[in-house]
Design a protein around this nucleic acid. Sequence first.
DNA 1: CGAAATCCTTTCCGGGTGAAAGCAGAAATG
DNA 2: CATTTCTGCTTTCACCCGGAAAGGATTTCG
Lengths: 142, 142
Amino acid sequence: MENYGIDEIDYRILHYIIEDSRLSHKEIGEKIHMTGQAVGARIRKLRELEIIEGYTVRWNPQKLGQNIHALITVFLSSNKAHPLFQKFALEHGSVAELHRVSGEGCYWMRVYVKDHEELASFLDQLLEFGNYRVSLGMGQLK
Amino acid sequence: MENYGIDEIDYRILHYIIEDSRLSHKEIGEKIHMTGQAVGARIRKLRELEIIEGYTVRWNPQKLGQNIHALITVFLSSNKAHPLFQKFALEHGSVAELHRVSGEGCYWMRVYVKDHEELASFLDQLLEFGNYRVSLGMGQLK
DNA sequence: CGAAATCCTTTCCGGGTGAAAGCAGAAATG
DNA sequence: CATTTCTGCTTTCACCCGGAAAGGATTTCG
């Protein structure tokens, strides 16, 4: 819970740029009654503390033909399977996110593919390493 | 698979800005042998097509004291529970992501909390609506 | 009280962004 | 084949943003 020197103002700034990282410092400053430069200094601090890890975009897989959004929990069948599975998942372009987990399963991952066929093929490959449980995303609410 | 007018160059640009949305158009242009303005026009097109939905940052929940990253599948006990559950999840600050799913469960969500106590309290509230399965994130690999 | 630290504002400069105009190559048409 | 049209890139330009530096207000501590 090392809270570094983060205060309420930093939180508010962080929320604003999570929402839209292209807000100018000046615009954010107007919301919180500061100059843009002061906001810039705080954002720089958030970067240096690595609370902000990087800048990216929200993009729409469906509009690129990735119509299937699968949330997959993986149960490896043997301890030896880990390195191979990791290599597989890291290198596979359909895997958008991968976590080691405890609780249900060994890994959890997010996969985007374009159709059922591609999903089936992916799951076939996955069977090499162990078992899985799949949920298909039907719409993001938040 | 409505591919709009997206070509290989657009894909490359998109990958670059998913990686780092603060790359200047000029820098991207150097990688793909174009001027910054041409890159800017393509990015504008990606925004207008809503392939790029918005700009945001990658941030580190742990450094803000949100030490627990829970991946939760929710099984609602009754059809009547949906509206209330949705309201609960949408309004609860710990819920970072929420999807309707088919397959395992009714909903899938990502939750950040600071400790086990907070998680337990959250799960208690969740029990009002139905059942759940929890996995705890132990490290992101991708 | 005086010094140091912190954090803000003011000022200024380099550079990025987006608009507009112009140009080149490809495709369509007579 | 010549002409027109369209598309997408480059050039130019004006504006604004972001970061650095310097200065000022407030708090902390000996």
